[in-house]
Design a protein around this nucleic acid. Structure first.
Length: 204
DNA sequence: TCACTTAGAACAGGGGCGCT
DNA sequence: AGCGCCCCTGTTCTAAGTGA
C-alpha cells in the first residue's frame, strides 16, 4: 500500500532521507528520470521460498505463506526463539542458526536443547571456547521465565507484553496448552483474535 | 598480531492492529 | 477514537573468537 501511495516502481530513482540517523525512508520518486523501463511492483502469488499458496486475509495488508513446513518460516522461528527478548541465547544468531539447519543438526527450536558438544564443535570456526560459550548460553536460557518462552514460541499477537499477561493466569505451559477458548478470552487485555490465535497455535 | 566472521547494540519511525 | 503493542526496516560501530 505504501508503494502504491508513493507510486514507486522497480528501477525508479528516488530521494531517500534518513529518518533519524539510521532508517532510510523514501521521500519521493524522481519521475523525470523515468525512461519507460520501470516496472510496476507486484506482490508474489506464491511463497517465493517454498512455492506454497499465499493468503491475504480480508481487510488485512500482509500476505502470508500458508505452509507450516516452509523452510523460511522454520528458520525465522528459530532465529526469533533464540533472540534477545525471547530466550536470549547469546551466540545463536541468524548465521549460526543457518549452519545448524544446513547440517541438519536441528529442525526446530526444541532441537537446540539436544545439541551435543560435538555437534557444536563440528561447525566451521567453532573450537573449544566458542563451543563452551554457546552450550553455556543454551543452558542459561533454561532459567528464563515462562513468559519469555511463550514469547519465544512465536504465537501471532503474543508479543512480550501479552506473554506476561498470559502467565499471570497460566503459571505453566501445560495449562495454557489445554485451556479452552473462553478461559483465555476472558483475561483482561486478551480479545477474541488473540485467544483464537493461541488456540489454533496449540492445535497444530 | 592481523584479517576475517559473526553477533549485537543503538537508532527513528510508522503501518497495522487489538483493546478499552 | 485513542492508546499501546507488535513488528519491521538498514546502517554503522564494537566486541569476541578463530585461523593463519
Amino acid at each position: 500500500d505504501e508503494i502504491r501511495r508513493k507510486d514507486v516502481k522497480v528501477g525508479d530513482w528516488v530521494v531517500v532521507h534518513k529518518a533519524g540517523d539510521v532508517i532510510p525512508e523514501i521521500v519521493k520518486v524522481i519521475k523525470e528520470r523515468r525512461d519507460g523501463s520501470q516496472q510496476e511492483f507486484r506482490m508474489p502469488g506464491k511463497c517465493p521460498v517454498c512455492g506454497s499458496d499465499v493468503i491475504k486475509p480480508e481487510g488485512e495488508v500482509a500476505l502470508r505463506c500458508t505452509s507450516m513446513a516452509c523452510p523460511a518460516q522454520q528458520y525465522e522461528r528459530i532465529v526469533h526463539f533464540a533472540s534477545k527478548g525471547a530466550m536470549d541465547i547469546e551466540g545463536l544468531g541468524p548465521a549460526i542458526v543457518e549452519k545448524f539447519l544446513d547440517k541438519k543438526l536441528i529442525k526446530d527450536s526444541a532441537d537446540i536443547y539436544y545439541l551435543k558438544y560435538d555437534d557444536v564443535f563440528s561447525l566451521e570456526n567453532f573450537k573449544e571456547k566458542s563451543t563452551k560459550n554457546l552450550l553455556g548460553a543454551i543452558e542459561e536460557s533454561k532459567k528464563k521465565p515462562l513468559s519469555r518462552l511463550l514469547f519465544a514460541m512465536g504465537i501471532r499477537y503474543v508479543g512480550s507484553h501479552t506473554a506476561v499477561v498470559l502467565t499471570r493466569v497460566f503459571t505453566d505451559l501445560d495449562s495454557l496448552m489445554h485451556a479452552r477458548y473462553e478461559e483465555i478470552e476472558e483475561i483482561k487485555e486478551i480479545g477474541p483474535k488473540i485467544a483464537e490465535s493461541i488456540i489454533s497455535f496449540f492445535n497444530h
